[in-house]
Amino acid sequence: MEAQSNSLVQINDLYKRFSISGDFLDQLQFKGGKLVRHQEHVHAINGVSLEVMPGEALCVVGESGCGKSTVARTVMGLLTPTAGQVSYRGERIDNLSDKQMLPYRKKMQMIFQNPYASLNPRMTIMETLREPIRFHNPALTASEIRDKIHEVMFSVGVDPSWGERYSHEFSGGQRQRISIARALAVDPEFIVADEPISALDVSIQAQVLNLMMEAQEQRNLTYLFITHDLAVVEHFGTRVAVMYLGTVCELAPTKQLFSSPRHPYTQALMSAIPRLEDNRPDYIKLTGEVPTPVNLPSGCVFHGRCPHANERCKQEIPMLTLLSDGTRVACHGVEENRL
């Protein structure tokens, strides 16, 4: 596995399974008079490879259950991958101990979806922000820490004089600003944002997105941005990875993806976005539901809902292949020039 030197974060052939069959005793079953152990797994990620380039915002989109949050959490080291590797600046980080991981934690920070759950209700904003700074910079004096807190609070547009308040005294948008401040407090290079705006109202979404874009410019941040909202992606992303059932089905620069989506799933997803248009555009109807990730379909995971699926799609798993226009697509149809 050659780790490319210019990527900031590299995810290589990542797999993650979660056991859903309980503990050892729950797994035992009687079958034909014999005691057998029966295990079931949710296949959350199945062979995902992504590279995040410095300074870009790589967006991962997909429907619920497609494994996008699992990718985010595995990259952050909050989950251990079942197989595959995660590297940061060429160094493998997925198998490090907590202690070895420490220097990376300072460089990688995460913003979570629900600002109501991700802030400790029993800590004041000051304490919430002080904790990561003090933990990662033990050499700083109390007044330096205070200056730092004021600086980040100011940069996210929260009045530093509100530091003694508790998180419940703030609105959703302000709480999300505070979680962004907490992530920025240790001067990270790389931020994983897992649906940071989906719990917020439209007018507040715009404020938070603007804030994240400002922070990116000023601090030269790199984002891994997880979302289900394609409109946000079009606005925010440098490149987009579309996920379906634990696999990446299309990876392309944002403009290209929106002007010419190649994978049938991406096309359906794009046409389903409700837009402010006079006449209702005909969207591509997908039949059926997303299959369960417990028993993955054979071949292309999308073949059950794909209008263009043929025999080959049902048997052979398509690989992500690079097209001449720079898009990477995992689809037999595109590969065979059928689509």
Binding site: Q174, S203, A206, Q207, N210, A231, V232, H235, R275
Partner: peptide
Amino acid sequence: QGLMNALPQMAIPGQKLNQIKGTM
């Protein structure tokens, strides 16, 4: 108007979104 303009699809990609200041 503000609500409409705040939608990401109304802005030029890469540019700042038009936000409504403050909260309800």
